[in-house]
Design a protein around this nucleic acid. Structure first.
Length: 236
DNA sequence: GCCAACGTTGGC
DNA sequence: GCCAACGTTGGC
């Protein structure tokens, strides 16, 4: 599902007391997430899922990711009558080259966004387009806060099931950092992935391939460094 | 446009 | 809590 139309959203985070609203029987977003995670583990014992669910204040001792890949669609496509196009050039064109990464409607992706810290770097990945791949880098400049587009009926990613008293979806703010020295095509990353899976190497379990549908994904430092090193290498 | 993979929903 | 049906993602 990726993100939607980007705007500058520097509205006050609306700090809501996240805590026991002593609410109905309805599952909280975090509970739903945990269930989803558990199911995922049962059905496909994937490992590097990262930290799960629940808490954004990472418990000590859990490996914390600090590099990311975020997908967005650089070509026009209409969802609920709204164009969701948002490529790296669109981010670059915004005031301060800064925007909010709204529209994420998947619990795992949301949880990864809530793990993000200011100053961390993320790859800007172009998906669902002619040439999928990594186009550039951006920096996280504001940690997760409520994605207001979930309440907006006219938004491509309006979610009628989410209530302001208990929002489901979050977003972060990002700033364009730079283009990669060359575009890093998915096909090339995949070649390395397959090679590394067979013979060992940094990209052997890259989430881009092991969890292909996740629109916000973590990379280990080793994965991140290897991918970045490709910009100085000849395409294969 | 096709369709495989996988996340979500809801009946039981 | 299982699981079939359904919906979405995203490469090709």
């Amino acid at each position: 599902m990726l993100r939607g139309i980007c705007r500058i959203c520097d509205m006050p985070p609306k700090k809501r007391a996240r805590g026991r609203p002593a609410k109905s029987a309805e599952a909280t977003p975090d509970q739903v997430t945990e269930e989803t995670e558990i199911r995922r583990k049962k059905t496909q014992k994937s490992k590097s899922a990262g930290k799960e669910g629940a808490d954004r204040d990472a418990p000590v001792g859990k490996a914390a990711y600090c590099h990311w890949l975020m997908k967005s669609e650089p070509e026009s496509r209409f969802e609920n009558g709204v164009d969701v196009k948002f490529g790296i050039e669109d981010l670059k064109a915004l005031p301060n080259q800064t925007g909010c990464w709204d529209g994420v409607r998947n619990y795992q992706a949301r949880n990864f966004m809530r793990d993000m810290k200011v100053q961390q770097l993320a790859f800007f990945y172009h998906s669902n387009c002619k040439e999928p791949g990594i186009a550039g880098l951006m920096k996280i400049i504001k940690e997760a806060y409520v994605d207001h587009t979930q309440f907006d009926r006219s938004d491509a990613h309006y979610d009628a099931s989410s209530k302001p008293e208990n929002p489901k979806w979050y977003m972060v703010d990002v700033r364009f950092e730079r283009m990669t020295k060359r575009f890093l095509p998915l096909a090339e990353l995949k070649k390395y992935h397959l090679q590394h899976k067979a013979e060992g190497g940094a990209l052997g379990s890259l989430a881009l391939f092991t969890r292909a549908r996740l629109s916000v994904q973590p990379l280990s430092a080793e994965e991140f460094d290897f991918v970045l090193s490709l910009e100085d290498r000849d395409p294969i």
